[in-house]
Design a protein around this nucleic acid. Structure first.
Lengths: 223, 223
DNA sequence: GAAGTCAGTGAACAACTGTAAGCCGAAACC
DNA sequence: GGTTTCGGCTTACAGTTGTTCACTGACTTC
């Protein structure tokens, strides 16, 4: 690469913006750290800037209010996941066994939660939390996931006879289920492999139930 | 009147306790009202007592802290639901059609959410919220629901071949799904019948998928 | 009827909070 | 080179918060 991978944004000003982004990132990191044991609406502006080591007024140079920081955190938490989801679904497109796909999905979920514990905790907290704009941001992001899963499911052979709308509902069910599993993993102590195993077992089981339901969706009613 | 139907509790002191319970209830009601637009950990003690019209110190006569009021609200919100759940499951025990049971479940969920909107909103908010004791109280209550659903499912004919553990997981899936549906109903404007219809349609669809999966759980693998 | 209990009061405490105004100094521009 | 931009700082304001204290007065008990 001729020019070292500048992320994306306009590198026009130069050092100035870099330093700004740096303290902005510091605010996000500290926010995430503090949000591990409380929720967004009870996180104080001063508490945050104190943790970072900047003056309270400095905050306003980066975010209009706490809610702004919240939606930024949503993007940070869920943004990098889209690529993963698409990758898993791409693997499932060719005729691999359904159970293998389930296994991969559960594994990826578990590793992602482990790697981004505070982020996921934040999402779980604020998904139905008190801050409307953050709620909406999370809902929009999860809806994007459902879209991606739906298009991933559409190409599979077992989707014959499914309407686009019903497929979207099914995709939402999968997404919702993985979010629940992630939340359960958060609640469990990270160093207790026994509870972990139980949670993941239950997750696999539930996904298999749903998948079986999908495959036999059009079967004649056995009454 | 010799003794007008005293509810249940020890009527030993008499009027004193009644008045106490009255302001206690006022605290709970006001709390629920204020919690409609914020979450528990950001609800101030003074804010609450101001709403009720009592002095801040009076609060401590009824609850040790805000968390205490939170767990009391959990009981109030979910306590009356157990009877309903058992009733629905009892109807499903005799051989009524599965779709009828699904229909009844969805209907009951919708009406309960409508009738106890603030309570349910509180549960959704605090289920993964910042207050540990409240989280645990909600989890325990939901687990009781899963138990009840599991024993309800066990007597149905389609549960042949299911282990008790797997049945509990299935029950948890049902419970989780209804909680999600309830949360979706909360987010939708209460006066928009169109979105409501869409949410309930999706809820029925998802429940049907799960039920089909359950019925065909032991089918030979059609690979 | 006297003695005791106890829900609720009002005042005071030592924090804490969000937000605004004006200034500084280093990076950016021409 | 000088000038402009602007991220961050300090200071200050006017509130808010949870918690404790001694107290009052209606209800309860004997």
């Amino acid at each position: 690469m001729s020019h070292t991978g500048a992320p994306a944004e306009g590198p026009r000003p130069g050092v100035r913006q870099a330093q700004k982004q740096q303290t902005r990132q510091a605010l996000l990191d500290a926010g995430l750290r503090l949000l591990e044991h409380q929720n967004l609406s009870s996180l104080g502006l001063r508490e945050l800037t104190r943790e970072v080591g900047v003056s309270p007024a400095a905050f306003y140079r980066h975010f209009p209010d706490m809610d702004g920081l919240g939606v930024a955190l949503v993007g940070e938490a869920l943004g990098s996941l889209h690529a993963m989801v698409r990758a898993v679904l791409a693997d499932g497109a060719d005729g691999s066994a359904p159970d293998a796909l389930i296994e991969r999905t559960v594994t990826i979920t578990a590793t992602y939660v482990d790697a981004h514990r505070p982020h996921i905790r934040f999402i779980a907290r604020e998904r139905h939390g008190g801050v409307r704009t953050v709620r909406e941001a999370i809902a929009a992001e999860l809806d994007r996931f459902a879209d991606e899963v739906a298009t991933g499911l559409a190409v599979q052979p077992s989707s014959a006879g499914w309407s686009a709308g019903d497929l979207h509902v099914l995709a939402g069910l999968y997404v919702d289920h993985m979010v629940s599993t992630a939340a359960e993993l958060l609640e469990a102590p990270p160093d207790d492999p026994e509870v972990r195993r139980r949670i993941l077992h239950a997750a696999r089981l539930r996904m298999r139930i749903i998948s079986v339901g999908r495959r036999h969706w059009l079967d004649p009613d056995p009454d």
